[in-house]
Simulated assay, not measured.
Amino acid sequence: MLKDILIENSLRKINLGLLPRDKKLYSDLPKMQVLLGPRRVGKTSAMQLYMQELTENLGVKSDRLVYFNFEDERVHFLPEQLDLILQAWKELHPSVQLEDCFFFFDEVQAAPGWEKFLNRINETLTKKNMLYRM
């Protein structure tokens, strides 16, 4: 199931009708960025615009963009299961090193134990950015 969701997310076309935001996300920061704000203000759209910028302007291949929405009703994680996302991504893209990926986690607060999961990724995997929104 996780592989199916990851494939769906990677094949999903970015909405090209999105309007640029006043606040930009930065591709040159060495660690994670957080988008906080009330519902329906465009946090997911900002993530999509950033992903679009990475692929179109900075030449990042789509197999290096790991996007996962924790509000997907098909998944219910226990804290010790969060690593299954990374394992599934590695199985889908065996030639891609997770250290070379950009991680995008939408509604991450819906997953119990998300804080330790993101901290581990931030401390051990990311040379690039990780972005999550709440």
Rank of each mutant, 00 (worst) to 15 (best):
M1S: 12
L2A: 05
D4P: 01
D4V: 01
I5T: 00
I7T: 07
N9V: 00
N9L: 04
L11M: 03
K13E: 10
K13H: 03
I14H: 12
I14S: 07
N15D: 13
L16I: 01
L16V: 01
L16S: 09
G17K: 11
L19V: 05
P20D: 14
P20S: 07
R21L: 05
R21D: 03
K23S: 01
K24T: 04
Y26N: 02
Y26S: 03
S27G: 06
S27V: 15
S27Q: 10
S27I: 13
S27M: 09
D28Q: 12
K31D: 10
K31F: 14
M32T: 01
Q33R: 07
Q33D: 05
L36S: 04
L36C: 09
G37Y: 02
V41Q: 07
K43C: 07
T44N: 08
A46N: 07
M47P: 12
L49I: 11
L49E: 14
Q52I: 06
Q52M: 08
Q52Y: 15
E53F: 07
E53Q: 11
T55M: 10
E56V: 09
E56W: 07
G59N: 12
G59M: 15
V60P: 15
V60I: 15
K61G: 08
S62P: 13
R64M: 04
L65P: 11
L65N: 06
Y67Q: 00
N69C: 03
N69W: 08
F70H: 06
E71I: 08
E71V: 12
D72R: 07
E73L: 15
E73F: 15
R74D: 06
L78R: 09
P79G: 05
P79R: 02
E80D: 12
D83L: 10
D83S: 07
L84R: 15
I85Y: 00
L86R: 02
A88P: 10
A88Q: 11
W89C: 04
K90H: 12
K90M: 14
E91C: 09
H93P: 03
H93R: 04
P94K: 06
S95E: 14
V96T: 13
L98R: 13
E99W: 00
E99Y: 04
D100K: 05
D100N: 02
C101W: 05
F103N: 11
F105P: 12
D106V: 13
D106K: 15
G113C: 03
E115G: 03
K116A: 12
K116L: 10
L118G: 04
N119K: 14
N119T: 05
R120T: 07
I121R: 13
N122R: 14
N122G: 08
N122A: 13
L125D: 04
T126H: 06
K127G: 05
N129D: 09
L131C: 09
L131D: 07
Y132V: 14
Y132Q: 12
Y132R: 06
